[in-house]
Design a protein around this nucleic acid. Structure first.
Lengths: 393, 393
DNA sequence: CCGATTTAATCCACTTTATGGACTTAATAT
DNA sequence: ATATTAAGTCCATAAAGTGGATTAAATCGG
């Protein structure tokens, strides 16, 4: 149910509207904010004052635009006080980053841990150390961490990680095992949000994260689509060919069996050993036929799965990330041709096919960005608790 | 951007919250409304008064629940004043229905028109007559039509119908051709909403409308998912087998080629003639092998497409409607078995598979229901303009 | 059968928040 | 130097919800 609005929540929401507009429109004067939001100059002035007190906004000098009349003083987001922490569990390392309100990355950490051999509890203990280190160091820079989110490589439903094949984890209640406050979410979802906020991401796109599994995050109207239980976006198990090779999910012919990291390396003649994507890239650059053909096949399969995804979810753009980012030059054409051929008559415009500009950090950034976005949408608590000293009696 | 809240919009929203709660919780006292919404009794009382004045709510007698203390007077939605009109263009007839605020169907119309031979303009002229007839007759019953929505059999993007194969329409700007005020939406989308509001529909489901084409409407959290351009839900073109028969969409192996009405009838040996679903049902009841096998094959194909859809969109339930409703006894098992086998390892619970309780009216009902839902979510304008006579000066 | 208790609904003084016009400030134009 | 224009602040007012007091209408207990 939509919640009822009272005086305090009216103010809370309007604060969010004003702060959101400051974020959206860069340096902007109070007068312009009033115009855009529809609030009066008085109201906006008061709110901007509160936001400045809370350290979320700063005056960034006079905005002289050549027009006559008194020039306005522009305000911008301030990265000096509020920050958020993004965490990620990868196969062989943990990573963390601290991002401030302006979405600038302030601190980054990685710590090598072989999470395939470690138990969930061990891994999470390592993660806790990383958490405290990051929080302490952020504090020493004057930043206060408004919240944190943890990215895990598999579908999450209410803090519970269903399965993470590349960690060997199955049905782990991560939320309950954490000894520090953090939200838990799927790496593919958060990578999509990372692309939205830190990449060139437009407002509507399907972000494909190719790893050992293949996940996807669907962003529509600037918000992530999660489905009924938060398990949406399992692109890796969309059926490419109903009688294809069987998959660990129980099905047959899933995309993962054609374009997952393992399948791809095997097709390129690199399976079975410790060989990885770097080797594949070398061979591609060397023009080795087997590697090129492996990419072409994977691209076609991806194109087929994406065609189904487009018909079902109608994304504006497709963004390829994860292992597909470095492979983009070799898979772009087969993916694009497959999609174009199969979508030809149904739509005026086939979704654009682009590549992620973010590296392996996409999920960590998205995790931190999610917290920042929540703060910007609802700065109320931070404004109130952010007051210095006891308020007027 | 989220809009700023001012005093009037605060009141508008709270009116919507109160009215929405009246709808949700049946006959309910003012005190209970206050408890649930978090507003004070004073505020709720004032709002209920306004809603009664506007004819949207009535007192429905004392609510004596055996407890001691003064019994409350319950209020319910009133179907006496506000209503909505749903319209639908089918292959060989037009239909309309008037639904009141309580979602009771008050008037129904159908008019035989062969829309395959008629041009869009001719069809819409017929529709206009139907519109006025419905509005006039509703008015004579004391109902005022708050709005209307038109269901068309194909994907719609901003009032523009991309293609409606069973009408032979292509790229028709329906919104601009209408000489009366109505929103235009895809029949599959509206059928899903019909199921949500008039059927047994739970809050999260994928509604499959099998017709000549196969569409789907995805409802998550009580809201329809439309994708970036409103073209989501084209289940009929999800790829079942990449090298399958070619489809009018330009692709190959689309679901429609296996489970669409034409493919199904052809497989059952009924193709080429005027034979239809009734004949197929006769043969199924007679136990004819060819018909049974056709259903089994269609069911398997549907199961494969739904498996992909489930991985991508994670619906809580699958509701089969359209031609799949009467065929349900014969396709249920193949669909269910295919889905279960292929989803086994990925989720604890495979989505439930149910059948639509609504007949061919689903879309018309959804169309009218959409208007009603908008009125309930935002009753403000109706409360203000609904006042009888000049207000107190 | 009557008073005590309990809950519903209304009344009224008050608080919170936004409004809108007046006022001050700081630029450009003439 | 003065007029004009726009930004930002001040202040009295309006709109809406709050919370406690009051009235109303039941059940419970003796």
């Amino acid at each position: 149910m939509t919640q009822a609005v009272r005086h305090d929540s009216m103010r809370a929401r309007n604060l969010g509207v004003v702060l959101g507009e400051v974020r959206r429109s860069g340096p902007i004067t109070r007068a312009a904010l009033a115009e855009i939001t529809g609030l009066t100059k008085t109201t906006v002035s008061k709110m901007v004052g509160d936001l400045i007190d809370a350290g979320m906004v700063t005056e960034s000098g006079a905005l002289r635009d050549g027009e006559r009349g008194r020039p306005g003083t522009a305000v911008t987001l301030s990265g000096e006080r509020v920050a958020a922490l993004g965490l990620e569990i990868n196969v062989d390392y943990l990573s963390a980053c601290v991002v401030d309100l302006t979405l600038s990355v302030r601190l980054r950490y990685t710590q090598a841990v072989d999470n395939r051999t470690a138990s969930p509890v061990e891994t999470l203990a390592h993660l806790q150390k990383l958490f405290h280190k990051a929080v302490d160091e952020a504090r020493s820079e004057g930043l206060s961490i408004a919240g944190s989110t943890l990215a895990v490589p598999g579908p999450v439903d209410g803090g519970r990680l269903h399965s993470a094949p590349n960690l060997g984890w199955h049905d782990v209640r991560v939320g309950e095992l954490l000894n520090f406050p953090a939200a838990v979410d799927n790496e593919a979802n958060l990578a999509a949000l990372g692309e939205l906020w830190f990449g060139s991401g437009p407002g509507d796109f399907l972000h494909v994260s190719g790893e050992i599994g293949i996940g996807a995050g669907l962003v529509v109207g600037g918000a992530l689509f999660r489905g009924a239980r938060g398990l949406a976006g399992e692109l890796g198990h969309v059926i490419v060919s109903p009688e294809g090779p069987s998959c660990r999910c129980g099905g047959r012919g899933c995309l993962e069996q054609y374009a997952g990291q393992e399948a791809l390396l095997r097709a390129a003649g690199l399976g079975g050993g410790p060989a990885g994507i770097p080797e594949l890239l070398e061979r591609l650059h060397a023009g080795e036929t087997r590697a090129l053909e492996a990419c072409a096949c994977a691209g076609q399969a991806l194109g087929i799965a994406l065609t189904s995804a487009i018909h079902l979810t109608d994304p504006g753009t497709i963004v390829l990330g994860g292992i597909f980012a470095p492979l983009f030059p070799w898979i772009r054409d087969p993916v694009h041709e497959t999609m174009t051929a199969r979508l030809a008559m149904m739509r005026h415009a086939v979704p654009e096919l682009t590549v992620s500009r973010l590296g392996g950090d996409a999920a960590t950034l998205g995790a931190a960005g999610q917290v920042i976005h929540r703060v910007i949408a609802d700065p109320w608590t931070h404004v109130v608790t952010g007051r210095t000293g006891p308020g007027p009696r």
